[in-house]
């Protein structure tokens, strides 16, 4: 025969910092956690448990059989410049011999700020784990991630955690607004158009790399007229200016290129752009190569751009 253990708990996460040491710069502003579990443990197993509770608990866990439900609702907070709002994850699963397995579920988040705004994020999730497995107690399989960002959509087909060696995944960019994207780096450059792309990712513990990414935009404008640094350069480099001035206002009908990024975030984009300075009906072929560190850009945005973010969202109200 067996002893039945029934557990039920509801936690308000806003006060979690009072009894659980949160990592520095991490703040939970809200959310609920509902836990329920029904477990059996055989009396024989109970009898063999060692006296010392520290030794006993893993044995106890290993001996439990049963099912659990963990519902995370409206989790919100900040961590090191990142922000997350209305995160929701319902989990149902079974536990046998220390191994647990949760049914396919969906993780949702209304907003994630990482220097770039991601909204309406949703990803399907298969979670399982081993209570006694010290190295990686949790295995996760993400499929069909989608989120709105920069006026368009980003989609990730699948990702496993922990990362096996050659874990590959594909990130799809769907109609991202180039003007919003460029404004992240420099507000005085105006580039319009909708960017599509497929970026093969290689995921590992050292980071995320992009190998042979392809991006393209079918139509738009490049306007450097208001860029003071650019205008200053045109004045200083008279020889180059005769050609470069066409970029003051260039209409393009094709932009395509290759993207490479290595694990530390260093990204190189090699773009070919076919366009025309309409004012002078002068056709232009622009070969544009740019190199920057995306992780550093996102960090800079998380550090200093935050004021614009809250300004645009709720105007002055937030500061009353």
């Amino acid at each position: 025969d067996a002893l039945q253990l029934h557990a039920e708990a509801q936690l308000e996460l806003a006060h979690i910092g009072e009894w659980l040491k949160l990592p520095s710069q991490t703040q939970i502003t809200g959310g609920q956690l509902d836990l329920t579990g029904r477990f059996d443990i055989s009396r024989a197993r109970l009898a063999k448990l060692p006296e010392d509770p520290v030794l006993a608990s893993p044995n106890l866990m290993a001996g439990l059989e049963g099912d659990f439900s963990i519902r995370l609702n409206r989790l919100g907070g900040k961590a090191d410049g990142y922000e997350f709002n209305q995160v929701q994850l319902p989990l149902q699963g079974v536990l046998t011999d220390g191994q647990w397995h949760a049914e396919l579920t969906t993780l949702k988040a209304e907003r994630i700020y990482a220097g770039v705004e991601l909204t309406d994020l949703a990803v399907d999730l298969n979670l399982s784990g081993d209570l006694n497995h010290k190295v990686s107690p949790v295995n996760a399989r993400f499929t069909g991630l989608s989120a709105e960002t920069l006026g368009g959509l980003v989609l990730l087909d699948r990702m496993n955690y922990p990362f096996s060696g050659g874990e590959t995944s594909e990130l799809t960019l769907d109609k991202l607004d180039l003007s919003e994207m460029i404004a992240l780096g420099d507000r005085q450059i105006k580039v319009t158009g909708l960017l599509n792309g497929t970026l093969p990712l290689r995921l590992s513990d050292t980071g995320i790399a992009i190998r042979q990414g392809r991006v393209y935009s079918s139509e738009g404008e490049i306007v450097l007229r208001e860029n003071s640094a650019w205008q200053a350069m045109l004045q200083q480099q008279a020889a180059l200016a005769s050609q470069l001035r066409h970029l003051n206002n260039l209409h393009y009908d094709l932009m395509q290129g290759d993207i490479e990024m290595n694990e530390d975030g260093q990204l190189t984009a090699v773009l070919t752009i076919r366009g025309e300075n309409k004012a002078e009906s002068q056709p232009v072929n622009l070969n544009f190569t740019s190199e920057q560190n995306i992780l550093t850009l996102l960090k800079a945005l998380r550090l200093s751009d935050h004021i614009d973010k809250s300004l645009s969202e709720s105007a002055q109200g937030m500061y009353q």
Partner: peptide, 23 residues
């Protein structure tokens, strides 16, 4: 006649580290 297209090669290296450092 339609003008001959001109080719422009532009290489740009952007250092975002500065914004983090200045901050």
């Amino acid at each position: 006649g339609a003008k001959e297209p001109i080719t422009i090669n532009l290489n740009v290296k952007i250092d975002h580290e500065i914004r983090v450092k200045v901050d």
